[in-house]
Amino acid sequence: MTTTELAPWPRLTGSEPCRAPNADPNDWTGTPKQRQEGQLACLLNCPEATRAQCLAWALDHPSKAGAAIWAGTTLNDRRRLRKERSTASEA
């Protein structure tokens, strides 16, 4: 029997842009324009190890991740990545 273990919630250090004291929650969950700002902030300022953990979590928990920015990815980015991951596992 094969089981798939889902990625755990990322270990955050507090230095991530989404955890900064002046972070605007709309940068992660607001309008598409606001989410672009969050996406850019994440890609420029979030530690790479944290981004990897956040991406794994968001890919494994799509309903919880929703349309918010996770690891610098949009909902459509993650849909594409899940499809690629699914196709690769079938090969």
Rank of each mutant, 00 (worst) to 15 (best):
A65L: 14
P21M: 03
Q36F: 04
C54R: 05
P62L: 15
P25R: 07
N45K: 12
L43P: 04
L40S: 11
D27A: 04
E48H: 10
A58C: 13
S89T: 09
N45D: 12
T2L: 12
R35M: 12
R78V: 15
N76P: 05
R80M: 03
S63W: 11
T87Y: 09
A41N: 12
C18L: 04
W9D: 04
R19V: 04
E48A: 15
R51F: 05
P47W: 14
T87P: 00
A68S: 15
R78F: 10
A41S: 02
P32L: 01
D77V: 13
T74N: 05
T50K: 02
W70G: 04
A7G: 02
A65N: 07
S15T: 11
R82K: 03
W70K: 00
E16F: 10
R85Y: 01
R35G: 00
D77G: 04
T50S: 11
S86W: 13
A65D: 04
P47C: 03
W70C: 03
W57Q: 03
C46G: 00
E84N: 11
A91P: 01
K83H: 07
T3I: 06
A52N: 08
L59P: 13
P8N: 11
E16Y: 08
P8A: 08
W70P: 06
A67V: 13
N76M: 12
N22Y: 04
C18I: 02
P21C: 05
A65K: 03
K83L: 12
T87K: 06
M1Q: 00
A56M: 02
E5P: 06
R78P: 01
